[in-house]
Write a protein that binds this DNA or RNA. Sequence first.
DNA 1: TAACTGATTGTTGGC
DNA 2: GCCAACAATCAGTTA
Length: 166
Amino acid sequence: MKGGKGKATAKKETAEVLKPSDDRLGKRKAAAKADKSSKSKANKDKKAKKDPNKPKRPASAFFVFLEEFREIYKREHPNVKAVSVVGKAGGEKWKSLTRAEKAPYEAKAAKRKSEYEKQMSAYNKKQESNADEGDEDSDRSKSEVNDEDDEESGEDEEEEEDDDDE
DNA sequence: TAACTGATTGTTGGC
DNA sequence: GCCAACAATCAGTTA
């Protein structure tokens, strides 16, 4: 492995000292920590056997927000490049948003999710047929994936305006 | 030079 | 139902 393994360990200790204020958050952090430690393995594992054709998980509302927030944050703090800082700031900002303010991000996330579901069903079908036929499909699956990609080209964002639910 | 780390929240998927 | 894993981002770190 590479990476700041040692750094991670040291960081972990620090993080443990710095008890998170939130219970759930703490769990998250702990999970993330455990995640991290296993992640290296998981990553390798993933790299080793993960299917590159498998659709990526859709961004949650928070991640949709974070994409935008990063842009703004970079503009306001061009010197700050650390993702950890942006992540933290984004998390705080996210918590300060009202439900109405979060609504457009949730709408986008919902859309991405439905696309993800479509892609997953296509992917699963492919997996089934792969299981059926065994192999001899590599180039076919490629073209199918391309088809899937085509699907999402049409839509950008149209339902930013459904924040009326309260 | 490739691979990992951190920091965040939400969601997915497996058990 | 619970919980681990993963989604984006990228400078910095390490082997």
